[in-house]
Amino acid sequence: MDHQPQLETMAVNPARVGNSKAIRMKSFYKKLAKNKAAMVGAFIVIVFSLLAIFAPLLAPYDPTEMQLSKKLETPSSEHWLGTDDKGRDILSRLLYGSRISLTVGILSTLLGALTGIILGVVAGYYGRWVDSLIMRICDVLLAFPGILLALAIVSVLGASTTNVIIAVAFYAIPTFARIVRGSTLTVKKLEYIDAIKAMGARDTRIIIKHILPNVLSPIIVQSTLYIASAIITASALSFLGMGTKPPTPEWGTMLAQGRSYVAQAPHITLFPGLVILLVVVGFNLFGDGLRDALDPKTKK
């Protein structure tokens, strides 16, 4: 990430010397810290990450343990967020569910981004028919509504958490490929690429050492934002019964199960819904803040 703030300082002060990496990181943090919304987002993301990591320690009950005598209980001191139709503790299920949702969100984004970056940079750098081929495939993928494509993939592969990750990642590919291709097209025309070519560098070296570091910042922003939509897509798939299977606690699955009891026990659907909302808002705020902090044009 250190490459980006430097774009910002580039025009500022050529006399700045010393440990430049540290200086650039510092200015980046400063900008980010000034952005209150981004800090709230970061706070939410960090809290949820911690909750996910320490879920086994924090959860008051076993998330799959059914106590049918206590089903559909409203929030109380015993069950802070109440119980569901099978008498399972909702708080514990949400805590464990965060592990699945965050893992799916992050892994699918990583997988999709990585593939997209490779395809995008190859398309942008080599151009001609390679570019046309890759971009046409991306166009086709983008023509499908995300959830439909994911549904199609999961129905082919079968419903499981792994397949949800694959499906969501697959849909991420064209988005990332497009962003990276665009930035690659810009960077490849810069003089230092010509200069390093004139030094006899091979294509792979040029791509890895000289193009990728310079196109990373939009990818970082996009990844953060994409995690949010990946969580939503994954939850939606589970809600539709095409994702993580019960009794594994998953936010989307919990929503689906609570659906039949909305009138009697709204808290079963309310809390998973709120949690999804909160995490998604957190990632979005953080992503927006990152974009502002990484953008050399938003200097105050």
Binding site: E191, A195, H210, N214
Partner: peptide
């Protein structure tokens, strides 16, 4: 054979 380019501001990679 090597080459020096016109624009020293842009002919070096900003990330290295």
């Amino acid at each position: 054979i090597s080459m020096i380019f016109q624009e020293p501001m842009t002919s070096l990679n900003p990330t290295l």
